[in-house]
Design a protein around this nucleic acid. Structure first.
Lengths: 193, 193, 193, 193
DNA sequence: GACTAACCGAGACGGTACGTCCTGTCTTGTC
DNA sequence: GACAAGACAGGACGTACCGTCTCGGTTAGTC
């Protein structure tokens, strides 16, 4: 029965995260400031600095909060990996397309490119858990002979996600379900036994 | 054949680009400032603002300049696409690993994530020309029956580059030749006729 | 009896005023900058802009501060107006001659010539109080029949101060006690009953 | 038959002076810049720097030019000094009141307070000639027994001009003919034999 | 009548200071 | 002791001018 943050105001904490999410959605990222977040949240600046190391840390928390509520990637298991990956990549396309979520991802990318510590945090808190789930699903598919057994889960996952991610980050071409399906189709061929 | 910048000082222009490249290599990107670049280049701030819209625009130019001198991606054609793509992806790994080039890519990514106009510029000036070359190589491979004909060059290219790019940007796993070879191997399977 | 500036740092305030006085004495006025004052005072620029509207406003405050400490013009009353005015004008000559005070007056003149609001402030905070004292002394002299009663105090005072001031501002001729005495002598003749 | 400025463009010279006068009248003095003058005169900056040492020097020239056309102070001689000085001081009040001339005087004062060399120039080119004329008039009045003979012309002149000048520069009270007449009346009493 | 030097407009250049904005720390008084 | 509020030292921003420096294009006076 530990009280981790004895007297931390939950009211302030969530106000800050909500304000951050809202601001990131409303305006270009370079315009977002700690002062702006504090003002929007009706909070003193010090309250932010007391609990987070930097603006990036707040952004990570803001995204983590949102994703935990949305229960990120339940990773379906219909028995057919292609079908499941189609579902997953389509959801990813939805996120990269949504005006609600995409700006948060963008903010996260910007911050983690600038701060190695933050990047590690993002990988540990967001990417690894996701990969762990995927790993489970891939092993089950391997057992069923749907994909080869000599390919690492991480690489296999990147084969699906990499092309989508590249397209999003560079804004080279449109992201839609058709594209997601094509990528799944090709990746499945690559992994075919 | 008009003089595009009637009286622009070439001396200043190149001093600014070199200073930018040097600074990006020497210190974390968030510490780089226009004032710092101006001071390092021995140039007035106004001279930067006169010819570039933002720090990001200078960074794009700095990278473009370096790449044009290095003559980016000669795209080999040995007759075997797998061999050629292995060469290309290994070179890409080299760049993402080099302390000389990687920081520039990182800076470019940060800036283009923050400024849509800049992103478009990066795509047009850096990505598209590269893709055009790749397209030619892929078509020739298609004619020789090395890969399927019903896959778009852009998607095919992303299949190779996407996984590498994802790994670099998120810093999830190490980037080396072995990994590049694996990706090529898998992508070639995906594209096999 | 409220606290007018709730949390203003007295340390910064006086450091700024002292730095301003020092700088004005040390170098020609056009070389004095807000940045220079801030640096000398060990203060952020914003702290100056927070409490003063312009460099001129700081200068006015700097002079006012100095004069209030020096207790400007005690205005003697020996019973003989000529004697007293001689004392006053000699003191004025001292100020216009002193390397410590003259530069401040000069700075003040420059600023108030450029900014009507500042000029009003100078008149209200510096000139009027001085004139009020003089007015009292003149009335007492009038009761004693030393000067005419039909001359306004303001005009009478200008008769003494004007010639000195004109000579100082235009740098036409030397300022010394002999000159001050001559002016007093003539002005007293002008005001004789 | 010397050509003082062999190839100087009279067109540019007068355009610069006119532009300076116009700008000084149209806007607060601190807003006036060399670049602004050059642009208004349709002239290159270098043309200004070629012929004048500073903005102040241009201002002096601009005023001198205007005053020479207006034929500054013809100094009347009706035989009665009081009458003549009344005329002169009323004209001075007119100048200190005129929206056409006052701003130039103000500009001149600002500049000469900041630059000793300029101040000397103003005294030599503008004040001394004026004083010379006054000296002649005073001597003639002395001969006629209208004023004392033991008072220096310079001091006598300051007795008239000082109070007016002080009032103008400090903006303490209104300047009008009545005031000018009062000053003349008092100064004449001071100088009476 | 062609030559040639200085002057001209234009404006880029290396700088300096401006006044604003934000950072991360600190201080004050409230709950 | 956490909190809202906000002053503080510091530092970068993007802008405005400074005074110097080319750049071509007149424009006089000379040969």
């Amino acid at each position: 029965m530990t009280t981790e943050y004895p007297r931390r105001s939950e009211r302030s904490r969530s106000a800050i995260l909500v304000a951050t999410q809202d601001l990131i959605r409303e305006q270009p990222y370079p315009k977002i400031t700690i002062e702006g977040i504090a003002a929007r949240a009706g909070v003193g600046k010090q309250t932010i600095y007391r609990w987070w190391r930097s603006k990036g840390a707040v952004v990570v928390d803001a995204l983590a909060t949102q994703n935990s509520t949305d229960d990120l990637l339940p990773l379906p298991d219909t028995g057919d990996l292609a079908t499941d990956m189609r579902t997953v990549l389509r959801a990813t396309v939805d996120e990269f397309t949504s005006p609600d979520v995409e700006p948060l991802f963008r903010a996260l990318a910007i911050e983690s490119l600038q701060d190695p510590a933050l990047q590690r945090q993002v990988v540990d808190q967001i990417y690894r858990p996701q990969l762990a789930q995927v790993d489970v699903r891939f092993r089950s598919a391997q057992k069923q002979g749907q994909i080869r057994s000599d390919v690492d889960s991480a690489i296999a996952f990147e084969l699906f996600v990499g092309p989508i991610f590249h397209r999003w980050m560079n804004g080279t071409f449109t992201l839609d379900y058709a594209h997601a399906d094509t990528v799944v189709h090709l990746a499945m061929r690559a992994l075919a036994p």
